[in-house]
Amino acid sequence: MAGGRVVTGWCVGALAVLLLAAGCRYPRDVEQTLQRVQGGVLDVGLTENEPWVVRGAEPGGVEVVLVRRLARQLNARVRWHWGAESELIPALRDRQIDLLVGGLVESPWLMDQVALIKPYQESRVTVGFAAGAAVPPSLEGVRVAVPVINKVFLALRDEGAIARRYADRPPTGEPLAAADWWLRAHGYRPGPWTLITDKHVVALPPGENAWLLRVQKHFSDAADVDALLRAETGGERRHEG
């Protein structure tokens, strides 16, 4: 039957493609970013966002450490480019930079613009209590200190808490909303509530799927993110002290 032969032909063709693909690198990039970076230059966009990306004479922070490690593995030289997200995202879409780090968190808006790795770290934002203070059973009526710029205002209101905004530094001894790792590093006891969960990602140019897979492997295989966070937040405390 002619139809049967056509189907068989298709299957054989598909198999041939698969075998060919298995022979070379698969998946491949549309614009060969991974090949270009290996043994070449890695252009990285940076936005300041402690403790993930810390601005200094040399860039520092958890994500910068991880990128340096990746560059070493790829035998690549890193060129850092400081900028605002609004400049760096179009630059990423145009493939002027190969990677964007800056404590980015997963959001539908960002996913629409650029390629994101799967979250390599999650931060639970909750309310912490100073050492010695009792953790109440509920947040109903509890006064919680939050920075002026924050994402937890609505979540706190839903829990019945009263958000009190502070301008410069958190008032000592009062309940405080922050990520659990930050609270622990600063001697607070994190409560059981999850106000929001930040899913940390880095961004890449769309369509560079081999490069995306390589970066994602690197970030999800990093076993010491918590240790790096502790080191960075400890450093921050020294700054304050």
Partner: peptide, 10 residues
């Protein structure tokens, strides 16, 4: 000319 994104999953 949108480039499709197909990344990895752990």
């Amino acid at each position: 000319a949108e480039h499709p994104i197909i990344g990895g999953i752990t």
